[in-house]
Amino acid sequence: MSSVLVSTTINGDPIEFACPPEETLLDSLRDRVGLTGVKEGCGTGDCGSCSVTLDGRLMCSCLVLSAEVEGRQVGTVEGMVENGQLHPLQESFIDNAALQCGICTPGFLIAANALLERNPSPTEKEIRYALAGNLCRCTGYDKIVRAVQVASKEMRKKSKKTKKK
């Protein structure tokens, strides 16, 4: 049993770790890198709790082998706070009570952020379909969709202000 050495960038930081070749990115992030904000709900790519971005693209980290992220950029929920400030989506999830137990929240935040980067003003339907890969059992999704709507508005306002400057 020989390990592979993986050099990668996680939330902007250079990270190296060794792991068995069959280990998933989910297990390495949690057990070797210490990023337990990435959650395991199923291990089969059905629940989205382990959502991360890989070179900016939304992925289930349980379906990616750690060896595959060599030299690439991984983004997790722990990287969403910038300069000590919560991301507008994070603020909106708290303000709009979009979480109950909160286990699915990191995955939803990553997926919603991936959506808003691609489409800054999604319709309700576009939000619902973009988040259809993330399971939530507490909320019935109502307040999650509303929180994403509020955040997208906030982010558009902010980006207008930045452009004016």
């Binding site: 904000g37 999830f93 009570a97 909160g102 935040l109």
Partner: peptide, 18 residues
């Protein structure tokens, strides 16, 4: 705003497997 809100949106909250 709930007291455990920030922990739960930043990944700091510790669940059973954490």
């Amino acid at each position: 705003r709930r007291p455990d809100g920030v922990d739960k949106v930043t990944g700091r909250a510790k669940y059973g497997a954490d």
